[in-house]
């Protein structure tokens, strides 16, 4: 599956089917992350079940305790 994450084309395994599993893949599963899917900001409690598919455009912003 091919996604556009923050404008970058990224090839990912088809086993990643939801926003939740994508965040886990990036090690962000337990972090506060702002997720925008195809120009709509998702409510945090919908990340787990929101489905993603080939060609989707995502914007991800997370937060760090470091510079």
């Amino acid at each position: 599956m091919n996604l556009f994450i923050n404008g970058q084309s990224v090839e990912l395994s088809d086993s990643i089917k939801t926003v939740g599993s994508l965040l886990n893949y990036y090690g962000l599963g337990d972090k506060v992350v702002i997720v925008e899917l195809n120009a709509t900001i998702l409510e945090k409690d919908t990340h787990q079940e929101t489905a993603i598919s080939d060609g989707d455009k995502l914007e991800l912003v997370h937060f760090v305790g470091g510079g």
Binding site: I5, N6, L60
Partner: peptide, 8 residues
């Protein structure tokens, strides 16, 4: 701080 958004 701080937020993190790669590739922009």
């Amino acid at each position: 701080g701080a937020s993190v958004k790669p590739y922009t």
